[in-house]
Computed example of a mutant assay.
Amino acid sequence: MSERLDQIKEFYQSDSTLAGVLRDLISVAKILIVFMILSQIIFGTWAPMRAIESGSMEPHMKIGDIVFIQDLSRTSVITQEDGMTSGYETFGDYGNVILYRKYGSTAETPIIHRAMYYVEAGEPMWKGGPVATHAGYITKGDNKITNRQYDQYSLCTVPIREEWVIGVARYRIPYAGYVRLAFSKVIEILTGKSQDQNRHT
């Protein structure tokens, strides 16, 4: 046992390049493990960060921002309608911004838009609009120029089911996602495959 401890001590005190690189890798691994554990505890997911890749949520979220997403197992969705009643605001407007999968599909890039209100099956999705085939959220981007209509007009023509919601946006780091977006684009070019898991529109 003491011999093993001596070897470990010698490794950490060594001046060799290889030992230095290995020590750095071990330090990075420790940081990543701590980050993943804290992410699971706080956000309910091992990978809570998502990079914004479109301007549909401007001015409150911009292309290149990193957004932290909290899993629904750790929180619940407050719609804009409910937020206006209670005074609850996030990201510059009432209610929560949610990350969801269109039609529940894992093959497409997730969408991050605001939950406007909730409708039940059989109710019109908006005044004079089509009837909801099932219960769910009506959603919309915050950009008043490019997203004047609800997502359910064309982007996802049915309400967003609860099980399609990946999580709720909690924090934003401006422009920190540009490196990730650039890296994903390079991988797409090299492999011909989309790297959509950590990106959204």
Rank of each mutant, 00 (worst) to 15 (best):
G104L: 01
C156S: 15
V97E: 01
G141W: 04
T45W: 03
T85A: 15
Y94G: 00
G122N: 11
M57V: 08
R4V: 10
H134F: 12
K144A: 09
R148P: 00
R50K: 13
D15I: 06
I160V: 15
E108Q: 06
I189Y: 15
E10L: 08
A169T: 04
T17W: 08
A121N: 12
Q149S: 03
H200Q: 08
N147R: 03
R50I: 14
I160M: 14
L5K: 06
R161D: 14
I138E: 02
I111Y: 13
V34M: 06
T90G: 04
T75I: 02
F68Y: 09
S194K: 12
A169G: 11
N147V: 02
G55I: 00
T191H: 10
P110T: 03
S14Q: 05
D15Q: 13
F11V: 09
G129I: 02
F183W: 09
L22T: 10
A107Q: 06
V131L: 15
L32Y: 09
P124L: 12
K9W: 11
N198F: 11
G141A: 05
R101A: 01
W126D: 07
S184L: 00
A47M: 13
V77L: 03
S14I: 03
G95I: 00
Y118G: 03
T133M: 10
I187S: 09
G167M: 11
A132Q: 08
R74L: 09
V21M: 08
T133L: 12
K102C: 10
L99T: 04
A121G: 08
V77P: 02
S16D: 14
